[in-house]
Amino acid sequence: MTLRPGTPAGVLPAFFRSSFGHVRRHGRLMVAVDGADTVVGAIAWSAPGQWKTPAWRGVLAAPALLRTFADRGRRIDAATHAAHPTEEHWYLAGVAVDPAAQTGGVGTALIREGLDVADSEGQPVYLECVEELIPSYERFGFAVTGRIEPGQVGMWRQVRSGRTS
């Protein structure tokens, strides 16, 4: 895939630099590697009380994000913040898997690892995703809490005892 500035895919590097940089300091950033030590997936978990990315990180990502989203980006950001639960929780800030590894269980393993940590700490988990991914997250015990914008939802998972599905 070729990423181009000015397209939705083109903003992903700026978005992930901003989000993952924050999570690296205030949460857990995990990667999955294949047998050749090539990164095939990554997941970012913000620790309880640490889900908000500082404004200065947004400023660093802003040029690429603003070129693409402009007003829509501001509306999405406001809606996402308004929908975010106030109860202490781990926040699944983002997960990405190389397309060639998407049916090999990489994403499942990354998500399970983080859910196991949240469960061991007695913390629920929150995430936002596009509607098409609802069934994928429901199998881990997430339930839709509400619509954030057309096509995007918030999902919540209560603490579980034992292994995640």
Score class of each variant (00 low, 15 high):
Arg67Gly: 14
Arg24Ile: 03
Val106His: 07
Pro135Phe: 02
Val144Phe: 15
Ser161Val: 06
Ala143His: 10
Val11Lys: 04
Val106Ser: 01
Gly21Met: 03
Val97Gly: 04
Gly105Arg: 03
Gly6Glu: 11
Ala42His: 09
Asp37Pro: 02
Ala9Cys: 05
Arg57Gly: 02
Arg74Glu: 13
Trp56Asp: 00
Ser136Arg: 15
Thr164Gly: 03
Glu88Tyr: 05
Ala109Thr: 14
Ala62Phe: 10
Val23Pro: 02
Ile148Tyr: 07
Leu29Met: 04
Phe20Trp: 12
Ala109Ser: 12
Leu3Ser: 08
Thr80Asn: 10
Ile134Lys: 01
Arg147Ala: 10
Phe140Thr: 01
Trp45Phe: 07
Leu115Glu: 05
Arg112Thr: 11
Gly58His: 12
Gln50Arg: 11
Val153Gly: 10
Gln102Val: 08
Ile43Ala: 01
Gly94Ala: 10
Ile43Glu: 01
His81Thr: 14
Val153Gln: 11
Gly122Asp: 09
Pro13Trp: 13
Leu29Ala: 03
Thr7Asp: 00
Leu65Met: 14
Gly49Glu: 13
Gly27Phe: 03
Thr2Asn: 10
Ala96Lys: 03
Arg28Asp: 12
Thr108Trp: 03
Gly114Val: 08
Gln152Leu: 11
Ala109Phe: 15
Val59Glu: 11
Gly104Thr: 11
Arg4Lys: 02
Ala118Trp: 00
Thr86Val: 10
His84Phe: 15
Met155Trp: 13
Ala14Gly: 03
Thr80Pro: 02
Thr80Phe: 08
Phe16Arg: 06
Val106Glu: 04
Gly154Ala: 00
Arg75Ala: 04
Leu133Met: 04
Leu65Tyr: 08
Tyr137Lys: 10
Val97Thr: 15
Val159His: 00
Arg72Asn: 02
Ser120Tyr: 03
Val11Ala: 02
Ile111His: 00
Ala118Phe: 00
Arg25Gln: 13
Ser18Arg: 12
Ala61Arg: 11
Val40Thr: 01
Leu12Glu: 13
Arg24Thr: 05
Val23Arg: 08
Arg25Lys: 11
His81Cys: 14
Pro13Met: 15
Gly114Tyr: 04
His26Phe: 12
Gly141Leu: 06
Ala64Val: 10
Pro63Lys: 04
Val11Glu: 05
Ala36Met: 12
Arg28Leu: 12
Arg160Ser: 12
Val125Ala: 14
Trp156Asp: 01
Pro5Gln: 09
Pro135Trp: 01
Gln50Thr: 05
Phe15Lys: 07
Ala101Asp: 07
Gln102Phe: 07
Ser165Arg: 11
Glu113Ala: 12
Ser165Pro: 10
Ala47Asp: 05
Asp71Gly: 07
Val153Glu: 14
Asp37Ala: 02
Thr68Ala: 03
Ile134Tyr: 03
Asp34Cys: 15
Ile148Phe: 06
Val117Tyr: 05
Phe69Met: 15
Gly105Tyr: 09
Arg74Trp: 13
Val106Asn: 03
Ser18Tyr: 02
Ser136Gln: 15
Pro13Gly: 04
Gly151Leu: 14
Trp51Glu: 02
Gly146Met: 14
His26Gly: 15
Gly6Arg: 09
Gly35Glu: 09
Trp56Tyr: 04
Ala78Ser: 06
Thr7His: 02
Phe15Arg: 06
Gly122Ala: 07
Met1His: 07
Gly141Phe: 04
Gln152Met: 08
Asp77Val: 07
Val159Met: 02
Trp51Ala: 04
Val40Arg: 00
Pro99Val: 09
Met30Glu: 13
His84Pro: 04
Ala55Pro: 15
Ala83Tyr: 05
Pro99Glu: 14
Phe140Val: 02
Val125Leu: 11
